[in-house]
Amino acid sequence: MAHCTSFPYEPVAEIGGGAYGTVYKARDTESGKFVALKNVRVQTDQNGLPVSTVREVALLKRLEQFDHPNVVRLMDVCATPRSDQETKVTLVFEHVDQDLKTYLEKAPAPGLSSDRIKDLMRQLLCGLAFLHSNQVMHRDLKPENILVTSQGQVKLADFGLAKIYSCHMALTPVVVTLWYRPPEVLLQSTYATPVDIWSTGCIFAEMFRRKPLFCGESEMDQLGKIFEVIGLPQEEEWPTGVTVSRKNFPAVKARPITDFVPEINEQGAKLLMQMLTFDPLKRISALNALEHLYFQDEETSNQDETL
């Protein structure tokens, strides 16, 4: 990993912080453009940076070669030794000056058109399918890290950092939102790429509702809110070896998703339910979601493009 020698980036504001390090909005003084600087503090030993960090950074750099339109560019990575025990790793990402949260808040009533939602969802799933096909999971997908350019292009940010951060995350409790978190993570069971599909389902619903679908205040409350919609899963679906018992929750039945997302069309509702499936192994994948009938039936969506 290169040392931070010529470093033309000047921080202008702090935009994120936590146990793992700090995120800054910064300006590239050569091009004048904004970038996002992510500093991660990493423990080092006599062999230098841990193998896991070097591997994750190498993976992010490899992804960069594909130049995927729906993920942010990684422009630079460098390391600054702070002491014998600690090195600061700085990742320089493209900065997009709008996130999905702002985009949804700005949309005048009655909200985004169904075609606009379909387009956003297609791009979001393309970005995810790309990450997942490279064995990268996002793990913390939410409207704040789904970026939307002024031209309506979706770009995922903050992916692939989970593993770089994780050793520090365990040390300090960080306040992170529970609202997009899937049941297997809330239950502290094993998890993999389906976590991102759950989050995508929550965000899909939010695009119609313009407010989050499940706003839990604790892990248990979050699970309760999820079951009020999808119903309490069957005993045999409950993961084994988790401390939280199914008996803690009332035996509620699934309610029609259209009670919560009334504006969604029939195929959209079907896709949403395949994303909000309790069992991660039965949950739809990003690639299969892109093949879903929801994206095939074009309704009126081609009309705008031919104008």
């Binding site: 000047e10 202008v12 300006r27 003084t29 000056d97 702002t102 985009y103 002024s150």
Partner: peptide, 28 residues
């Protein structure tokens, strides 16, 4: 100088409170 460019509601709040829109970045 650092506001999210996609957020006119933020810009509007700042400008209504008398924010100077002509302040230039000290480096660039």
């Amino acid at each position: 100088q650092v506001m999210m460019m996609g957020s006119w509601p933020v810009a509007q709040a700042l400008l209504q409170h008398g924010a100077d829109p002509n302040v230039a970045d000290r480096s660039t």
